[in-house]
């Protein structure tokens, strides 16, 4: 499945082929503990099912200061 991912901390957009979040996080080398996941402005968990052409935002949980 093709997933469009926006990584807030690095301000980067990437396209990733992944079946689930576990695979997605491994591919983009992001620690799931350091982000929250949103899809269509809804908060979801890493156990949620991914759909083809999903647009995912990974918001940083690490404080900026």
């Amino acid at each position: 499945m093709k997933i469009k991912v926006f990584i807030e901390r690095t301000n980067k957009k990437v396209m990733v082929n992944a079946k689930n979040f576990n695979e997605l996080f491994k591919k983009i080398k992001v620690d799931p503990n350091t982000v929250i996941i949103t899809r269509k402005n809804e908060l979801i968990t890493e156990k949620a099912k991914l759909n083809n052409n999903d647009e995912i935002k990974l918001l940083s949980v690490i404080s900026g200061g």
Binding site: I36, I62, S63
Partner: peptide, 12 residues
């Protein structure tokens, strides 16, 4: 509370 919980709370 963890950073992740607080970020989720702030978002929600």
């Amino acid at each position: 509370l963890t950073e992740k919980e607080i970020t989720a709370f702030a978002f929600l």
